[in-house]
């Protein structure tokens, strides 16, 4: 089963398939946080994972004439969980949705600067948006399962690409559900409607659905905000599991959640990146005054 999903991943990576060319692109010192901090946070054995999955360079997002994200420069590390925090309307969701170009759906939305995924600017003209979205999956705030069966929900993405045998497909569905820690709860009713699941289960189903496509990066837009504490805990545990294999970028309003689950934290305020660093450092010893105010609840 694990082989299947690896195969699927390789296949889906498509035109954005990772090259190691970007390894040398981030010059030392350009990163907004020091190597020592990293070493302090994760120890020497984490060194090998310290590659950049998504990189924003002077990246701005405009809604018509309104600049929602202002010249953000930021590296999202591969196979880490990065949390984006900030008050409502600060542009964190906009930034997140820009990474798999979901903002394209909004009329009048355009960008300036560069946003690199696998070292390729995803806003350059030749980019295949469909392939990008396979490589960069997304989980939304509301669990938006399709009104189909549980199996069909998970199989939706793989079926779009086609080429999988029936057996391979059901293997893939099982693997994805297992990774999303949902398999044991639904294995007896895969042919039942996804809408019959509870909210927390639906959200994990959405995660399984996103994983089935074989992404490298998973974007999560406040994935637990519509859930009860118990379901939230399960989602958080799941994210903790997934960080081993996926680069996760999560937008959250819940500061404790950001502190609990993320390795790095970016604080956005009014569209600008105020502070970005290892979560421990941001929450215990923020550099910027605004960050401290926000974290301690003085505004936002």
């Amino acid at each position: 089963m694990a082989e299947t999903i690896t195969k699927a991943q390789t296949k889906t990576a498509g035109p954005l398939e990772g090259t190691s060319a970007h390894h040398g692109m981030v010059a030392p010192g350009e990163a907004p946080f020091a190597q020592e901090q990293l070493r302090e946070a994760f120890g020497a054995d984490e060194q090998n994972r310290r590659e950049v999955a998504v990189q924003a360079k002077d990246f701005s997002v405009w809604y018509a004439t309104n600049e929602a994200v202002k010249k953000v420069t930021l590296d999202f590390k591969e196979r880490f969980v990065t949390a984006i925090i900030g008050p409502s309307g600060c542009g964190k969701s906009t930034l997140l949705r820009a990474i798999n170009r979901m903002n394209d759906l909004i009329p009048g939305c355009h960008v300036t600067g560069e946003l690199l995924v696998d070292s390729r600017n995803i806003y350059s003209p030749g980019i295949d948006v469909v392939a990008l979205r396979r490589a960069v999956g997304m989980v939304f705030q509301q669990p938006n399962v399709f009104p189909k069966t549980i199996f069909d929900n998970v199989a939706y993405g793989p079926r779009l690409q086609g080429g999988l045998s029936r057996a391979a497909l059901s293997d893939l569905v099982e693997t994805s559900l297992r990774r999303a820690a949902l398999w044991d709860e639904v294995k007896d009713r895969l042919r039942g409607s996804a809408l019959s699941l509870s909210g927390g289960q639906q959200q994990r189903l959405c995660i399984a659905r996103a994983l089935a496509v074989g992404p490298e990066v998973v974007l999560m837009d406040e994935p637990a905000s519509a859930l009860d504490p118990q379901s939230t805990a399960r989602i958080e545990a799941l994210i903790d599991e997934l960080r081993k294999e996926y680069t996760i970028i999560i937008v959250t309003h819940n500061m404790q959640q950001a502190a609990r689950i993320s390795d790095f934290t970016a604080f956005l305020y009014e569209g600008r990146l105020i502070e970005y660093g290892a979560t421990k450092q941001v929450f215990t010893n923020p550099v910027q005054r605004q960050t401290e105010d926000y974290i301690t609840g003085r505004f936002g």
Partner: peptide
């Protein structure tokens, strides 16, 4: 039809027609 369905589908790599 809720736009959430469209978003979910597109985010999974579906083309507009699909």
């Amino acid at each position: 039809v809720p736009s959430a369905y469209r978003e979910a589908s597109l985010a999974l790599g579906a083309s507009k027609g699909k």
